[in-house]
């Protein structure tokens, strides 16, 4: 489980390390469970050293869900390792990055 921070009715989940196929199923579950409560979510990625397509798929699915249910959702602290994959996938202009 990744640590979360609750503030002003919004949750921040702080992903860290290598978000790959070994951890993405649990990560997906944790992110979606937060969104199912209806609270806004920020995914903090500053401490992510590596992310693969299964990790990116979690972010895409979360963004889709949040958009459909009008829940606030964004990515924060996108570092070069994460941005590399988002750019290759041409998702850097699609996902809400701040």
């Amino acid at each position: 489980m990744f640590p979360t921070i609750e503030k002003d009715g919004k949750t921040t989940i702080c992903l860290e390390g290598e978000v790959d196929l070994a951890v993405s199923p649990q990560t997906r579950r944790q992110i979606l469970d937060i969104l199912y409560t209806g609270k806004g979510l920020t995914v903090q990625l500053a401490k992510v050293d590596y992310i693969d397509s299964s990790g990116v798929a979690c972010l895409v699915e979360a963004y889709q869900y949040a958009r459909k249910h009008s829940i606030s959702f964004d990515l924060e602290g996108v570092n070069p390792a994460v941005m590399r994959v988002l750019k290759l996938a041409k998702l850097d202009a699609v996902l809400p990055i701040r």
Binding site: S53, V56, A57, C58, V60, L88, A89, K90, V94
Partner: peptide, 18 residues
């Protein structure tokens, strides 16, 4: 064809891009 809002197929897309 990568639909940016569909998670599936991303791995093969990355492989082909690189």
């Amino acid at each position: 064809e990568l639909n940016h809002l569909e998670p599936g197929g991303l791995g093969v897309y990355l492989l082909d891009e690189i």
